[in-house]
Design a protein around this nucleic acid. Sequence first.
DNA 1: AAAAAGACAGACAGACCTGTCTATTTACAT
DNA 2: ATGTAAATAGACAGGTCTGTCTGTCTTTTT
Lengths: 190, 190
Amino acid sequence: MTRNLREHILQTASGLFYSQGIKATGIDTIVKASGVAKMSLYKYFPSKDDLVVAHLQRSKEVMLSFINCGIAGEDKTAEQKLLAVFDVFAEILANPEFRGCPFINASAEFADAPAPVRQAVANFSEALHKLLADLALQAGIADAQQLARQLSMLITGAVVSKQIEKQPDTMRTAYIAAKILIEQGAKTRI
Amino acid sequence: MTRNLREHILQTASGLFYSQGIKATGIDTIVKASGVAKMSLYKYFPSKDDLVVAHLQRSKEVMLSFINCGIAGEDKTAEQKLLAVFDVFAEILANPEFRGCPFINASAEFADAPAPVRQAVANFSEALHKLLADLALQAGIADAQQLARQLSMLITGAVVSKQIEKQPDTMRTAYIAAKILIEQGAKTRI
DNA sequence: AAAAAGACAGACAGACCTGTCTATTTACAT
DNA sequence: ATGTAAATAGACAGGTCTGTCTGTCTTTTT
């Protein structure tokens, strides 16, 4: 039961943090929503910051496994997988519960963030970059790092744009741009 | 004196909101930093939300005039002006006091934002898009709207990436990608 | 110079938030 | 069955925040 309880608290908190914002979600709200005693929460997460870090860690894992799942397939070329990443994000953005990127939001909420929070935020960014860079490398693109940075900027920009405006085809625009950048990069193969 | 006082309060608040975050900046902090009486602040800005909206409005004007200033020049072609926008942002990102985009940050801080705040955030985004779309149109690019959306995503992505990671040449990467997208767009002239 | 308006200084109410503490109940293991 | 560990319920302290209120001082106007 102990593992379940921790997981249950984290799951509840994660949902609230994402949908309402971290600072806007009080401990009491999490306690009430999860139907757990406050002391239990503080047993597994000694402070709210610990809970926030765990939430970001969890979000990172969820996101990465979601992406990896979406680009899987032996029949896909590396270039197709790069584009498939954009399809995954298109799906995420289409979800009516989409409320922006949890990492970007956290980064903005914690201007003078405690180090662990900032670190957790940077982690996902790096992981996504590495994933893209590996694919670009597999595609034989000469400056794989550069292309990966460009694509990750496009994704970031699309996610934020979608959050601010309401435009429905945001990710489609990013997809088209990505295709152009990938093709251009592919001209300078190793 | 009355206009000056209002302006002085707004200027102080704007600086604090940007550097420390909006929710993290209390009214008392603004009062102390501006050396003004609390009652004076509440006279000109009946609530903190009013002050936040004024701050975003002000930031929008500052940013737009900064951009317009950076791309001015009779000798520049429309395409050069598009790229000059990226140079302006490179300058902004190079500033050691850079702390992300005030609008994106506000959007993330106010998950369930009051309508006026969300509106003020969307305003800048639209203004930037319009500026880019007009330049793309002047450059004779067929799908000017599409290119403008792509470029504004790149800018947004670069700004956020810079905020999260510490990479020094973020805007350079965006610039190169922009060049490719503009050239590609220019192939399908009207 | 006197009167009126504007600005300052800071106390205060009411709400909310984090984190702690105690007392009670539930679940389990021996 | 009984003792131990875990979970619950909720009061509480200490702090912070917004927004209000009251007096005092300064400036301007007449």
